[in-house]
Design a protein around this nucleic acid. Structure first.
Lengths: 289, 289
DNA sequence: TTGAAGCTGTCAAATTCGTTACAGTGGCGG
DNA sequence: CCGCCACTGTAACGAATTTGACAGCTTCAA
């Protein structure tokens, strides 16, 4: 074991080789990182079972990383863990998520987690469920829109909802296209609007017109709440602060994904049929190329 | 191991029994405390040699402490160390422990957090920094692309990078548009591609062509790693699992935001000037309406 | 001084572990 | 469609570990 390691940790070596790992080896990597490095400090049999691969696969990974055998691999893990435990300074690095002043990735992750947990407290579950009910109702048409930045999130939600149900359309960000989209908005339709800080100045006009035509407006906004809220039937306020010049849209995207998942669950039989049909059509598309 | 102890650690039990330990057992205790608990996580032979006693003495100590045998004793040590290691990270789970498996919002948030912390372990900080350096280099042109789903993330990144620096373009998802975009890709350009599971079948062609023209490819993918990796100079593997029919793009978006923030920091003076200019132009746009 | 009790190490049996060889499987290119 | 190659798991072997039995040693008291 002393043959090959310089100062590189097993984790680093894994990352370096990540691209050339096979499926079984990647399973092992995931299992190891899930509880690093303790997961690797058990017998080869147990480690293999934990990752749901065979014992020789573990051995192959160890050799690929440059170790003589499994014991060498394990000793390397032990050595680095031992070093970390004895060195109180390095202790902080281990919990990188807690070290707020190290790498920007960690600072950002910290902010993202805080935004997420903060948003969960802000959001009313009943409002969320009510929105899901609206979006899962196949008799309604759904229209999605966002501002200059949030349009990417709206588009993401549109793509996923389109796979789950019919009659989903994305409203372009450019106001000059709005009239022709307003034409197709009718009574009982649902409009989901994303509007966060630096609220779009034109969107209230659009929302007001849509409302006059009988549409129900769902608003996803930040904790300071867009002025659109007075036009909306449901409003989800989210935390979006980031250590950056711009706000973070991670939580809005999170809400979008959660909505999709909930909508799919709410109408599973129809959705399943639709997704299967979609798969078939995709195959055709692929063959036709 | 599960037989006797509840929450007592091995160290505590040793201290309790300290008075009734024999000479050999005390040697073992000293050796264990000298490097607790790592000293006990080796084979019984090695542990005995370290403490200069015989192997059966180790076994006798383990039994005296109430363990079935040496493996039980060792597993107890592993378990407490593992708990200790995970604790600071697991503290994020506390909020979700309020309602662990009830509402889909909580389940999704749980998954998002796990993906985030898992991704932080997978990602090599140096690779991230190298990518930032590439993106912050204003002499290079930047091109961004994604698949059917990830194009929303690519578009998000494009919008933000465009605010921070010149020469940023978004490659459309439709392959028929690619030739005209390839035309403008030259030596030293940077291509950032998002490619996660259900990897886009056409993207390798595009990437290969771009590479031939001298561009450097940066890949943001999932933990199973897109085949594009062999064409890329830097690859960021992320965890993207979600309790849903589709994968989660929260972490890719997180990376996009972190990249933007880091790029802005890396070239603050120029970026600041650019953003101010942008503000001025936005005002004009607003007045002109 | 002697015997007994308890502690410790040596040794060997049984089990588990780590490793190698080999065969089956699936994907890819011709 | 076929053959090749890479990957994965099964099975068997050898090595190491764990454990129990036994004998030597020390210590203490009679």
């Amino acid at each position: 074991m002393r043959a090959q390691q310089r100062s590189t940790t097993v984790a680093e070596r894994l990352r370096l080789k990540a691209a050339e790992l096979t499926a079984a080896e990647r399973k092992l990597m995931t299992a190891l990182f899930a509880n690093y490095p303790m997961a690797g400090l058990v017998s080869i049999t147990e480690f293999a079972r934990e990752a749901a691969v065979s014992t020789p696969s573990v051995l192959r990974l160890a050799k690929k990383l440059g170790f003589a055998g499994f014991p060498s691999f394990q000793e390397a893990l032990r050595a680095e863990l031992s070093a970390q435990l004895q060195n109180p300074i390095a202790k902080h690095d281990r919990w990188s998520a807690d070290a707020p002043d190290t790498h920007i990735l960690n600072r950002f992750a910290q902010a993202a987690m805080e935004n997420l947990s903060g948003s969960l407290k802000l959001v009313d579950h009943r409002a969320f469920d009510a929105i899901v009910a609206l979006l899962a109702d196949r008799k309604r048409h759904i229209h999605l829109g966002g501002g200059r930045i949030t349009c990417a999130v709206a588009s993401y939600l549109a793509t996923h909802l389109q796979m789950a149900r019919p009659h989903v359309s994305l409203i372009p960000t450019t106001p000059s296209f709005w009239p022709q989209y307003l034409l197709d908005i009718g009574k009982g339709d649902v409009i989901v609007l994303f509007d966060i800080r630096r609220y779009d100045a034109r969107m209230p006009d659009f929302a007001a017109s849509a409302r006059e035509r009988g549409a129900r407006i769902v608003l996803i906004t930040d904790q300071w709440i867009s002025p659109l809220a007075r036009l909306a039937v449901h409003t989800l306020p989210l935390r979006i602060e980031a250590p950056s010049s711009w706000d973070s849209n991670i939580v809005p995207l999170f809400v979008a994904e959660a909505l999709v998942s909930a909508v799919i669950n709410a109408s599973w039989p129809e959705t399943q049929a639709r997704i299967q049909e979609l798969e078939t059509l995709s195959d055709i598309g692929r063959r036709a190329r």
